[in-house]
């Protein structure tokens, strides 16, 4: 096998990365992809403006896009992992076509399927998700593998302009599972109340 660009070797702790990105952003609406990103965000801050996926693999970016299009006043951040992103890769092309200025995506890439026994993912074997995003048309797509690099790009991740994607190569540590609610209805109601969509926009005929 020839030499390929691979994940692995990063010392960036995934929860440090999440903390660095979401701290001081109380208004941000966060959607998490299933598995470790859900545990990471719950571990850092189980806030009312979090919507956690425990399934629907491949759907996190699409869910975030729908929310961003429905609520242009709200800044939306999707936090997902490499396996979930690989399954929903087409959604990056869809997001690029719509290019919502209030949507950002953070991919925590450890090159592993953590929930199923730490098997290597495609990103450990040559696939570069920042390049995939760029190829889909997401020009504001950055890759980091240290906390300093992440801090350097942090403001750009939070700055509206077009859709942004931060591809963070993270360490492979298997961290404590901090589980938020599994009840998606309860999560939905809490989330919608927090972002004030608990009432559908008033219409005259209902």
């Amino acid at each position: 096998m020839g030499e390929m660009k691979k994940a692995g070797g990063s010392q960036l702790n995934r929860r440090d990365a999440v903390r660095e990105i979401i701290s001081g952003q109380p208004e941000l609406a966060i959607v998490t992809g299933l598995g470790s990103p859900t545990w990471d965000v719950a571990a850092i801050d189980d806030r009312d403006r979090n919507f956690y996926l425990w399934g629907a693999m491949g759907g996190a970016v699409s869910l975030g896009l729908g929310l961003a299009l429905a609520r242009k006043d709200l800044d939306v951040l999707v936090i997902t992992g490499d396996g979930e992103m690989l399954m929903g890769m087409g959604s990056l092309a869809t997001v690029a076509v719509k290019a919502p200025q209030n949507l950002a995506i953070l991919v925590l890439d450890n090159g592993l399927y953590g929930e199923t026994g730490m098997q290597q993912s495609h990103t450990a074997r040559g696939c570069d998700l920042a390049e995939v995003a760029r190829g889909c048309g997401i020009a504001d797509s950055w890759q980091v593998s240290t906390i300093e690099e992440l801090q350097a790009v942090r403001e750009r991740v939070h700055t509206r302009g077009s859709v942004r994607l931060l591809h963070a190569r993270v360490a492979t540590d298997d961290l404590e599972r901090v589980m938020p609610t599994r009840d998606a209805v309860a999560n939905k109601l809490r989330f919608r109340a927090a972002i004030d969509s608990s009432q559908e926009r008033q219409r005259e005929d209902i």
Binding site: L65, R71, G90, V97
Partner: peptide, 22 residues
């Protein structure tokens, strides 16, 4: 919203509803 696969639309519509949009 033009999709690459129909399943994107399922998640998209759920996200839109989180934001109160039909």
């Amino acid at each position: 919203v033009v999709l690459t696969s129909e399943e994107e639309g399922v998640a998209l519509c759920s996200g839109a509803w989180l934001g109160g949009m039909r």
